[in-house]
Design a protein around this nucleic acid. Sequence first.
RNA 1: CGGAGUGUAGCGCAGUCUGGUAGCGCACCUGGUUUGGGACCAGGGGGUCGAAGGUUCGAGUCCUUUCACUCCGACCA
Length: 568
Amino acid sequence: MRFSRLLVPTTKETPNDATLASHIYLIRGGFIQSVGGSGLYNFLPLGKKVLDKVRAVVKDELDKAGCQEVSLSFVTPASLWEESGRYEKYGKELLRFKDRKNNEFVLGPTHEEMMVNLVRQSVKSYKQLPLNLYQINLKFRDEIRPRFGLMRGREFLMKDGYSFHVNEEDMKREFDLMEETYRKIFIRLGLEFRVVEADSGAIGGSGSKEFMVLADSGEDTIVVCDNCDYGANIEAAVRKEKPCDAKAPEADFAKSHTPDTTTIEDLATFFHVDPYYLVKTVAKRALYDEGRSEIVLFALRGSDELQEVKACNAVDANDLVDVTEEELSEVGLEAGYMGPTTAPEGVRVVFDNNLKDASSMICGANEKDYHLVGNSFVGLDADYHDLAAVQEGDLCVHCGSPLRYTKGIEAGHIFQLGTQYSEPLGCNFLDENGKAQPMVMGTYGIGVSRLIAAIIEQNHDDKGCIWTKESAPFDLQILVSNIKDEEQVALGEKLYEAMKAKGADVLLDDRKDRFGAKMKDYELLGVPHAVVIGKKLADGLVEFVSRDGMIKEEISSEKVLNFLMERF
RNA sequence: CGGAGUGUAGCGCAGUCUGGUAGCGCACCUGGUUUGGGACCAGGGGGUCGAAGGUUCGAGUCCUUUCACUCCGACCA
């Protein structure tokens, strides 16, 4: 391709809403173009090339692993979502609309229902299983707050795959195969990543893993162990039971007057105890289907923080929202003095696992200005769940080493679904005995357009993009410094034609601009290698540039063709 | 949905308080000079001033309504 013919509107100025490197450079480099803000983007020729290359890697590895590509209708009848029960559960991110006949449709952010529908219509026998089908298509998610360019757009390209099996065991085999396949994809794309245990969220199911591209700008906090390979999203991370060095307070059970002592900090000071021996009681309103909701008290140690996703899962709610003091009063609760043991009738209480058999605890008395001391939960029959967020320094359940936080970009997610969708949607097969059984499913996603952002987040410098080999828009860029110098042009053309003939994807910068402008554009676009044909050609020399580190190497102009032929 | 802002040329912005010819930088077009780090000179094109209504002789500017977008928070593959 000739630069003079290429539509790449590069700019010097950064768009004012862009803060992330990937967002800035993808826009400035003319890869993508914002469509009236709001998380919608056009892919310009260069962006489309990168997208296609990433997509090709994904497809190649999946096909090698035996998956089959399909393409599902983008518009989905709402009835399918009603069948699976997700129509209500999914919330406002699901874009819903009606056609002229007033039938309801959705634009799917993920396509479990559609794929199950496809399979239940065409697969009847165990002989046709297992099956792994995927598509790489646009998805739409009506984000509350789209931002960060391709990282969190509303419309995005995603690979979503679904596998169907006769039993759990075979599904797990496929799940492991997909993990391996995903690893290959991420490695080929040149990414530094970590596979972590995750919460399953709205997709549902159990045993899910996320592929996190490590980057400081990542939106997810992940907990990792440096000693072993344990890694988990903060939403799902577990830790070794936490001991406490501080002495337990000695007190018999009693009601204690504690005016103006409403925070854990105040209480710890007031009683001179470690927060470990205090009960933190967090009230949330849990939202369920059909608009039902209730106030739930989550009790955990004062030294811990509530992990909302865990809490939400513990009560099987669709969502948790904050409650106001007025709402608390209505059910007889007093902010700052809530406790799990004396909660008013009808208020649901969930205990953190860490409180099981705990003693010498201090908690709110559910009465203004009073706390209860000397509580013992030994043998207490209560609703116990893991509710606490793992903190840095907590110990790994596998090897006992300290855990630490890092940031990641979620670029892939694989789930063991089981029969969660096949059962309600009636996706059954006949087994050897002619008995109908629901298929056991797995589901696997990769955010393809998000991967592009992730690649740049991880691979850039202060000048622009540094594409990895398999994601680069071109293999090589040939930069003719002065387009009026016939010798330079002649060599540039010769190399360009020769490399093109060899099958390399080459970009020839034949524009009339000055050297500086061309160089800046090269750095911004981030093609892995360039040949710069400039002033030194008079001395028989050209430069070979590697974008990563901007390493320049002088090469004889006579030998450069051979050099390139060997290298590309 | 809560708080704060912004809508003026493709992009970034001034002009609005105090009503009176629609501006600047970048980008774009023409001609010329220039060609190793985003050049220079000269000339030029491009606007329903987010939308609707109102006040006024006159509205980008004042009033009312409305829409959109951005940022912080909550939330989220």
